[in-house]
Each structure stands twice: as structure tokens, then as C-alpha cells.
Amino acid sequence: MNVGTKVALAVAAAAVTVAATSGVLVHRVTAADQLSTARSELDGRLMSDAYDYYAARKSPARLNPRDLPGPVKHAVDKGVRVTYLDHGTLWAATRVADGEVLTLSRSYAPEERSLAALDRTLLGVGAAATVLVSLAGLLLGLRMGRRATAAARTAESIADGDLDARVRPGGRDEIARLSASVDTMADALGARLEAERRVTADIAHELRTPVAGMTTAVGLLPAGPATDLMKRSLDNLRGLVEDVLEVARLDAQVAVLETEERQVSAMTRRAVAGSAEVGLRIVEDAVVTTDPRRVERILANLTANALRHGAAPVEVEVDGPVVRVRDHGAGFPADLLAVVHTSGPQRFRTTAPGAGTGLGLTIAVGQARLLGARLAFRNRPEGGAEAVLTLPGPSSS
């Protein structure tokens, strides 16, 4: 149940409670006032009839009626002048000379009808007021719900990577403060990420020159195991620098697509070429319009990740515009899958120390987003990890 519904129900419940309580109070006060007035009036008439009785004048009062209620008779026997309401009849009685009981009675139906009419009026007014207040509460609740939902959706968009999303709140209540806090958080997060991107790109650019110099210097060294080790280390360092620069370009959204029509099978073959532990299976081929260099980079990164962190054999399957990369290892860690499905892979995060830089999946996800493709990760029920790349705009081949 959302906030708007809860507010509307709370306002409606309060309106019903207030209307019911007010109606009961008005009913009781009016009933007591009507009964007091009727008793006072009938008692006054009884006193007048008592004077008439002593003056031997005719009056509507009766002596010792047989239908006199027991409580009235009991009170009069104690010498009390009494008025009493019994089943719609109002009685007034007093003792006169010679132990006689002089009584007056009348129907209480007019007061009961008047009270019933008042109850109907109270019920109608209360129902109308409850409906109006409930509608006002519903409108207020819907407005609050829309504002809270807008803030939540903006926060979700920011979590998904849209750092330009803003709530732009209005008002001065708590929801406005929450919305303003979301916007402030987005501004701070965007500024921090931009600073990190600039630092990453600057470091990678600065490293290019010394790496190139070291490569030239190593090329002048005599052949030998130490030289080979240095060459391999420099190749790894150069690859890391290029990966960091690629991530920086993707973050800055300055990458340019060079699209053309290519067979999915051809791009996949080039991506896995030279990997003897990778098996390729073509279920159905397709021609897509895309940037082949970026598709091949995605598939090469996925295959390398499967070889490094999974277990052989690694299987690559082409099924139209869909390419699946599977391994037979332990699968993706649960925490990694949770992060991938919300904000994408964390850069420089690996499943084990010394197992790589953690940029492969980051680059693959960024390239797929740039191409308008879908890249999903999951663990297969029978074991092993699977990455599924779905390319857009296929045509049959």
C-alpha cells in the first residue's frame, strides 16, 4: 500500500470518527434537553391540575389510574412528586389529599419523531462531510504519493546511472526536503564520479608515455628469460592502460560508433580466434547493423573472463542476434550478480586476488550500452556462468 492510499484511508477514518462522535453527542444532548423540557412542562401542568383538584374544578388529570407504572407508584408512595418516561408515554404524578394519586400522561411520540428526524439529518450531513473530507484526503494522498513516487523513481534512475535525473521539488514539507536531498545527492555523486573519471583518464594518459619509453628500452635489451618476462609485463601494463582509457571514453560518452552490416558468426569467430579452449557453435546466423570492432571487443572480454575465472571448456553459441558465452566453473558470485543487475560491474573488482584488473566486464557492459545491445549475466542451473549478448536490429541471413 503506497503513501497516498494510507493518507487517504487515514483521513477517511478520521472523518468517519469525527462525524460519528459529533452525531452521537448531538443526539444525546438533544434527547436529554427534549426530555427535560417535556418533564418540566408536564410537571407544571400537573401542579396546575392539582390546584384545580383542590378547588373542585374539572381537569384532565386522573386519580389512581390502573395503568400507572410501578416505578411511578413506588416513588409517589414515598411522597415524591415524579415525572417518568415509560415506553413512549410520559407520566407525571403526585399525592393529594386522602392518599389519592393525581396523574397526568401524554404521548412522547412527537419528541421521538423530532429526534429521529434529527438523527437522519445528522446522518446525511455526516455522510456528506465524510465523503467531501475523504475526497480531499484522497486528492492530498494522491499528490503526496505522486511526489514520493517521483522522488523514488529519480533515485532509481540515478542508481541506474542517469546522473542527470532530478526531482526539482516544490513546497516546504518533508517530501520536498526528501526530494531536495535526492537532487543534492545526485549533484554530489555526479561531481565525485566526474572527478574520478578525470583522474582515471589523466593517469592513463600520463602512463602512456613512460610505457612507450619502457617498451622501446626493452626492445634494445638482449634476448633472454629476463627480457621476455619484462616484455610480458609491459604488454600487460599497456593493455591495462588501454583498458582504463577505454573506460574513461565510455564514461565521458565521447566514443563514436562506426556501424556496418556484419554477420554475427563472423564477428564471433574473430573474437575467439586463437583460443583453443573455446568451442564455437552456430545454431542460426544473422546479419546485424552494428560496430563490429566493439562487438568483437565485448565477446573477447567475455571469453577471456570465462577462461580466467571459470573452467574449461568455454562454449560460445550464436543463435541469430544472440551470443551466449558459457563456462563450466563455479559461476558468478551472488554478490557480483546482485551488483551487475543493479549498477553494472564494479571496476577493479575481481573474484580472486591476482586474477586480473576487473575491467573486462565493465568495458563489455559499457560497449553493449553504447551499441544499444543487452548484456545479461546468470548462473546456469546445471552449473557454470553464462553471459548473454543480444544485439539489436537483426535481419535473417
Score class of each variant (00 low, 15 high):
Thr89Leu: 07
Ser179Arg: 01
Glu41Asn: 12
Gly44Ser: 11
Val11Gly: 14
Gly137Ser: 09
Ala266Arg: 05
Ser40Gln: 13
Ser179Trp: 01
Arg293Ser: 10
Val325Cys: 12
Glu260His: 12
Ser40Tyr: 00
Asp291Gly: 03
Val182Arg: 00
Ala334Thr: 15
Ala368Val: 11
Asp119Ser: 15
Ala273Lys: 06
Asn305Trp: 00
Ala191Ile: 02
His27Thr: 11
Val295Leu: 04
Ala186Gly: 05
Ala75His: 10
Glu246Asp: 13
Ala195Val: 03
Val283Pro: 01
Arg374His: 05
Ala151Phe: 05
Leu42Arg: 05
Val241Met: 11
Ser48Ile: 12
Gly310Asp: 02
Ala55Thr: 12
Ser40Arg: 06
Thr37Ile: 06
Ser179Ile: 03
Val288Ser: 04
Val247Ala: 10
Ala355Glu: 12
Ala127Ile: 13
Gln253Trp: 03
Lys73Arg: 15
Thr130Ile: 11
Ala223Tyr: 00
Glu315Asp: 14
Ser114Gln: 15
Tyr54Ala: 12
Arg238Val: 02
His328Tyr: 07
Ala75Met: 09
Asp52Thr: 14
Gly145Val: 06
Arg380Pro: 12
Ser233Ile: 09
Asp319Thr: 11
Asp86Ala: 09
Arg326Ile: 07
Arg39Val: 05
Val211Lys: 05
Gly358Cys: 02
Ala368Glu: 12
Ala92Leu: 00
Arg380Met: 08
Ser181Cys: 01
Ala186Ser: 03
Leu229Pro: 00
Ala355Phe: 04
Met1Asp: 04
Met185Thr: 09
Ser397Phe: 08
Pro394Lys: 01
Ala355His: 08
Ala330Met: 09
Leu90Tyr: 00
Ser22His: 05
Asp187Phe: 00
Pro313Gly: 11
Met267Thr: 06
Ala312Arg: 14
Val323Asn: 14
Arg378Gln: 08
Ala151Gly: 04
Leu63Asn: 04
Asp77Trp: 10
Ala286Thr: 04
Ala352Glu: 07
Glu156His: 13
Val29Leu: 11
Gly239Asp: 11
Thr357Tyr: 10
Leu68Tyr: 08
Leu375Tyr: 06
Ala255Ile: 08
Ser343Pro: 00
Pro60Gln: 06
Gly224Thr: 10
Ala129Lys: 04
Arg198Met: 13
Ala152Arg: 15
Ser59Glu: 03
Val167Leu: 08
Gly161Lys: 10
Lys231Leu: 13
Gly141Ala: 07
Glu261Val: 13
Gly219Glu: 09
Leu336Pro: 00
Ala300Gly: 06
Leu140Tyr: 11
Glu242Asp: 14
Leu63Gln: 03
Thr350Val: 15
Ala286Asp: 05
Ala61Glu: 04
Val365Asp: 11
Met185Lys: 03
Gly384Lys: 05
Ala248Asn: 06
Arg113Asn: 15
Met47Arg: 15
Gly224Val: 10
Asp228Ile: 14
Leu35Asp: 02
